[in-house]
């Protein structure tokens, strides 16, 4: 796929476009893991995780009876005034991803290392993908650590190990969260290619994130009103209107992630029909879905997140290939 995107030259290039890829990945990961800003982010996430999980455990202990999915509740239970951990993830993950990539390309440019690195026998492809993968692996590493921490706290606090299915759901949720981070990583990578100033790239990434976080629902409801004007008179019309609203909402990576989260961590959820995600929690009572059914339910969401990531990476790729490298 990436090969066909090379618009510049139709001639066959020599050697592998990925030569040097793992060298770049290793170097950038080392940079990430030792940088001060990552330390700050890690601290922030660990504190959030510890705080919310502790609060969730207080809440869980006070309820009577053994919930078969009590470990999932560690992620989803909130205790006023603190939201649940998944509530925090919705913005901690984008923030972390943006932190990892907003100066990926323009940082090399501003340090004037770009021309020296590209004068080595590697292609630009390897440099860009290497930077993306380094960010993604770092993200995965940080999140996996947090997940382990939460499970560990759970085992200590609840005094019992998670069941096989719980572990599986938590793992798939981890993967989904990494994909969600991938979207913001790729977005920040695009802006780091477009803008010469790292600060501009960071602000632009955060602006997009805020847009989806805060304004998208407003935009969507006005859009829906424009596309299907008038008060619904029949049930069918009302259904159509709700359907449209939901479809539009799903163009936001946040919605995809929230729905995927709910589907995975709340096994009772059987569909995302005409129920808003916020109403889902605890509202649906019924027999839980088996794991494979839940995964099937959120499969479109996961592929949607991957598709957005690929699209954004492709944009960054094309921009980077055409960029003048001189200062």
């Amino acid at each position: 796929m990436l090969k066909s995107l090379n618009l510049g030259s139709t001639r066959e290039r020599e050697g592998s476009p990925w030569r040097g890829l793992w060298v770049v990945v290793a170097k950038d990961m080392a940079d990430h893991l030792t940088s001060a800003r990552m330390r700050i982010m890690e601290l922030l996430i660990v504190l959030t995780a510890a705080g919310t999980v502790y609060a969730a455990m207080q809440n869980i202990r006070s309820t009577v009876g053994r919930d078969p999915f009590v470990f999932l509740k560690l992620f989803t239970t909130s205790q006023d005034p603190l939201p649940a951990f998944i509530g925090f993830l919705g913005f901690l993950v984008p923030l972390l991803a943006i932190t990892l990539a907003f100066d990926a390309v323009n940082g090399e440019f501003n340090q004037r290392t770009l021309s020296r690195v590209l004068a080595q026998p590697i292609y630009r492809d390897a440099l860009l993908l290497g930077k993306f993968l380094a960010g993604l692996f770092t993200l995965a590493l940080v999140l996996a650590t947090i997940w382990l921490l939460i499970i560990g706290l759970g085992i200590l606090g609840l005094g019992l190990p998670p069941s096989g299915e719980e572990v599986a759901r938590i793992l798939v949720f981890l993967v989904g969260t990494i994909f969600y981070g991938g979207v913001w990583l790729a977005l920040a990578l695009v802006f780091s290619t477009v803008f010469r100033q790292s600060a501009t790239a960071a602000l632009a990434s955060i602006a997009v994130w805020l847009f989806f976080m805060v304004f998208w629902s407003i935009v969507v409801s006005s859009l829906a009103r424009i596309l299907q004007p008038g008060e619904p008179t029949t049930l069918q019309q009302a259904l159509n209107q709700a359907q449209l609203l939901q479809t539009l909402t799903r163009f936001s990576p946040n919605t995809l992630y929230v729905e995927a989260t709910v589907g995975l961590l709340n096994p009772a959820v059987r569909s995302f029909g005409l129920v808003l995600p916020t109403e889902l929690q605890g509202a649906l009572i019924g027999s839980p879905l088996p794991l494979d059914q839940s995964i099937l339910l959120i499969w479109p969401h996961l592929t949607g997140l991957i598709a957005i990531t690929l699209l954004l990476f492709a944009i960054a790729y094309v921009l980077f290939q055409r960029q003048e490298i001189r200062a």
Binding site: R11, E14, Q111, R116, I122, Y123
Partner: peptide, 20 residues
């Protein structure tokens, strides 16, 4: 066509050299 062969054999000192 053969950027890797060229870049493996040619050393380049850019006008504004930068390091990490």
């Amino acid at each position: 066509r053969n950027p890797l062969s060229v870049k493996a054999r040619v050393g380049y000192l850019p006008d504004q050299i930068g390091f990490y």
